[in-house]
């Protein structure tokens, strides 16, 4: 918006209410990206591959 360029003085919002942690998480795409890759990699891929690798060999 046209007027946003005027308000970019650092610290102009110190008096405003702090943003809750959950909202900060939701506003941080890169943190979400990390979570969105780490969770399935560990729970689905690594766990699954470990199970396959550790299967016993038939006698």
């Amino acid at each position: 918006m046209a007027n946003t360029t005027e308000s970019n003085v650092p610290g102009d919002d110190v008096l405003e209410e702090p943003v809750p942690a959950m909202q900060q998480l939701l506003d941080n795409p890169f943190l979400l990206l990390f979570i969105g890759i780490a969770v399935p990699t560990v729970l689905y891929t690594i766990w699954g591959v470990m199970e396959i690798v550790n299967l016993p060999i038939a006698k």
């Binding site: 959950m22 998480l25 939701l26 979400l32 979570i35 969105g36 969770v39 399935p40 729970l43 689905y44 699954g48």
Partner: peptide, 16 residues
């Protein structure tokens, strides 16, 4: 947004 967050966390597990 929290519903979308649940997607980010868990949706992909369902590949199983």
């Amino acid at each position: 947004r929290t519903a979308f967050l649940l997607y980010i966390f868990f949706l992909q597990l369902a590949s199983a």
